[in-house]
Design a binder for these strands. Structure first.
Length: 246
DNA sequence: CGACATGATTGTCT
DNA sequence: AGACAATCATGTCG
């Protein structure tokens, strides 16, 4: 039932060789939500998954070879016993049926157990490998610069549209949902402690001001590579104190 | 190693 | 659906 579905979705109980990794990748992409699939890291995951798969299949095969036999043997054994008893007391066919049913259920519960334990193994594997929190990497400097630049130059309304997010994502070579995460975190953390971000705000404000100036001055002249820092003190950072972020 | 920074997830609200 | 708030898990710096 449910276990079957999950194992199938996970590519464990699916078709043998080729489809396995594809199904696993599909499952990962589908439920992972946030893509970020480095195939190098996924290969490890896939290797472990196929290991589980192999164990599952060999166990299942063992079960099917052995237990079918055993089940039939056991059933006939019980039948014989019942037949013997039927000499001394009447035994209804209903009772025999019930016994057989019990035996079959008992044996199929073994299969269930196998499936369940396999499921568990897969779940553990997934939580280990697919939980992005466990392998978080900071964005590179350029990406954070781009994001910060957008944030501080739209400080009065730091809610990029879907299009803007896509563009930022492309520029930073991250996903759109990563951009959304970044802005979510940034907004809340900025709001929570504006003082801590003052310096950063000033810096980016100054930088964009310089950029705008140099662009509007149509000069390919004078781009200051390192610190276009506002000389001296703290010119007004041009952020609106409240507004929007609530 | 501890403290803080940071990206991601989860739950709740609207 | 998207925003916010709290929280988790890892990265990084002193």
């Amino acid at each position: 039932m449910r276990l079957d579905n999950m194992l199938l979705a996970e590519g464990v109980s699916g078709p043998e060789k080729g489809g396995g990794s594809a199904a696993a990748a599909a499952a990962a992409a589908a439920s992972g939500g946030v893509g970020a699939d480095n195939s190098a890291e996924h290969s490890d995951y896939r290797a472990k998954l196929s290991q589980i798969r192999q164990i599952y299949h060999t166990e299942l095969e063992k079960y099917e070879q052995v237990s079918k036999h055993a089940c039939n043997e056991f059933t006939t054994h019980v039948m014989n016993l019942l037949r013997e008893q039927s000499r001394t007391r009447p035994i209804s066919p209903k009772e025999i049926e019930r016994m057989v049913g019990i035996i079959h259920r008992k044996f199929s519960s073994i299969q269930m157990q196998l499936k369940q334990s396999t499921c568990e193994a897969v779940m553990i594997l997934r939580s280990r490998f697919l939980d992005a929190r466990r392998k978080r990497r900071n964005f590179n400097k350029q990406a954070t610069e781009i994001l910060n630049e957008y944030f501080y130059s739209h400080l009065s309304n730091p809610y990029p549209s879907e299009e803007a997010k896509e563009e930022l994502a492309k520029k930073c070579s991250i996903t759109v949902s990563q951009v959304s995460n970044w802005f979510g975190n940034k907004r809340i953390r900025y709001k929570k402690n504006i003082g801590k971000f003052q310096e950063e705000a000033n810096m980016y404000a100054a930088r964009t001001a310089v950029n705008a100036a140099s662009v509007s001055a149509h000069g390919s002249q004078a781009n200051s590579p390192s610190t276009p820092n506002s000389a001296g003190g703290y010119p007004s950072p041009c952020y609106q104190p409240d507004r929007r972020i609530q």
